[in-house]
């Protein structure tokens, strides 16, 4: 906010309209939205599979501890794990290539946004399990019995009873996942060396001056942009969370 003469300026915020920043913002938004929605759907399925099992079972304990570790999985390790799996020298890719199914025929998409999205799912799904499982555990068997005694089937139960009750929790968790991807830096930086496709990398770039120029003021402007977006998402999340706790306890 302070220019070379030490007086206040808004020039750095004006720089946010630079073409590549607008493009990066859109990129970051879309990858966060896509991984949040896919992660929420698959995470919810996994959480449901856990919740209908034995509440004191070994399977539940293992999946929950594993989710705790995987949701915090270091970004660098994660990027390497996927490079070792489906990277150009990874054994899964080599196997597919030998069987005439070269999925990198057009481009090595692992090192572009689609690849980044796939890698993000590795921590998004476990996070969804951790956040959504308490809501699923709040489902009471009586609701199902009540539906059945009124003549409703499985479809009716999910459409009119469990669905609407779980919807706020599901949406809230999705928003949390969105904020989580939006803030991620390490994975993207370890996986993609060129182009800095997400906002967090642009901040790193403006701070280090390795790519482009050293612009600490501009880094702060991008940081403010990120904080504003993440704050809006978090406020929406806590509002939805409050609505959830009214029913599921």
């Amino acid at each position: 906010m302070v220019d070379a003469n030490g007086s206040l300026t808004l020039v750095n915020f004006g720089h946010l309209s630079r073409e590549y920043i607008v493009k990066t913002t859109i990129n970051t938004f879309s990858i966060s939205a896509v991984t949040a929605i896919i992660g929420a759907v698959f995470g919810a399925l996994l959480a449901y599979a856990i919740s209908v099992g034995n509440p004191k079972g070994l399977l539940r304990r293992i999946t929950l501890s594993a989710s705790g570790v995987l949701a915090q999985f270091g970004g660098v390790t994660l990027a390497f794990a996927f490079i070792a799996t489906i990277g150009p020298a990874g054994f899964v890719y080599l196997w597919f290539a030998q069987h005439h199914a070269d999925f990198y025929a057009n481009s090595i998409w692992l090192f572009e946004l689609p690849g980044l999205a796939l890698v993000y799912l590795y921590f998004q799904v476990p996070l969804m399990v951790l956040v959504f499982l308490p809501a699923l555990d709040g489902i009471k068997p009586q609701w199902r019995e009540a539906t059945e005694s009124l003549g409703g089937g499985t479809w009716h139960y999910w459409r009119y009873v469990a669905g609407p009750l779980l919807a706020p929790a599901f949406l809230g968790a999705t928003l949390l996942l969105f904020a989580n991807s939006f803030s991620a830096y390490a994975t993207a930086n370890a996986l993609i060396n060129q182009g800095q496709p997400v906002l967090a990398q642009q901040i790193g770039g403006a701070l280090s001056g390795e790519v482009g120029t050293f612009e600490p003021g501009f880094a702060k402007a991008i940081a403010v942009e990120m904080v504003v977006i993440v704050t809006l998402v978090t406020v929406a999340y806590s509002l939805l969370q409050r609505r959830t706790t009214r029913w599921l306890q």
Binding site: F42, T63, L78, A81, A84, T85, G90, F91, V92
Partner: peptide
């Protein structure tokens, strides 16, 4: 669900060993 999740989460870790 458990088999699919197991594959998605364990294969990359195994692949690191392999690599």
């Amino acid at each position: 669900v458990f088999v699919a999740a197991g594959i998605f989460f364990l294969v990359p870790i195994g692949a690191m060993f392999e690599f």
